[in-house]
Design a protein around this nucleic acid. Structure first.
Lengths: 106, 106
DNA sequence: AGATTAGGTGACCATTTGGTCACGTGTCAA
DNA sequence: TTGACACGTGACCAAATGGTCACCTAATCT
């Protein structure tokens, strides 16, 4: 299992992406806090968080009996850089930004 | 199955990522051409390309009896934008670029 | 026309993955 | 110190996934 394989596998599940979304809104949540966002038992959520942590997408810190979860954007940026070179980036960024601008006006 | 789900599922497999790598190097390849890069029968490769196309990561064009495959970077950029805001992007880009610079010198 | 080449479909099977549960460890507070 | 709370592990099962094969259509070449 290569390193980037863990990242892509981790991102492949909708529940895990939802967890990343929550952490993107606000960092430092506990397992029990994240549990309430999802239709699933605590064990399911724990398994998902474990995979995210193994992939390096989430970084954790223990605080007493709680475990705090933080989003790490580095692996995401590396995915980007793998298939978008500097030249393409300029064009694609302009295109995507324009599109979202137009949609916000509508 | 939501739209972005297709993208992440498509990226989850190492063979499909390898195919994207080949198309990143050079666009417009045929199935038989891509087949030679992989330890797998033609049917396996075809299935993978199908998923990449459904996800919008690869765009195809027919030319006679051949089917040409092109890499589409837009979905990749959208993944990036989902979890990296403009402020974080500046910091993370600097960090990642610095790291790769140091590694190239070593 | 006949042979060859490029691509496509549906069924099938082994493996992986997502989710739950019984049970266990460390921490906090009354 | 007793009980509640937050988190952790390993086994287990149903569903999804990766890969192959028999068989097929359409374009190209001699």
């Amino acid at each position: 299992m290569t390193d980037d394989d863990l990242v892509f596998k981790a991102l492949a599940d909708p529940t895990r992406r939802l967890l990343l979304d929550r952490l993107f809104e606000r960092d430092g949540r506990t397992l029990t806090e994240l549990e309430s966002d999802v239709e699933m038992t605590r064990f399911g959520v724990m398994k998902h968080l474990r995979l995210l942590e193994d992939a390096g997408l989430v970084i954790t810190r223990k605080s007493g009996r709680e475990k705090l979860h933080f989003l790490n954007p580095v692996p995401i940026r590396l995915i980007h850089d793998r298939w978008i070179d500097k030249y393409t980036e300029r064009r694609i960024t302009a295109l995507v930004d324009l599109k979202s601008e137009l949609e916000n006006k509508a």
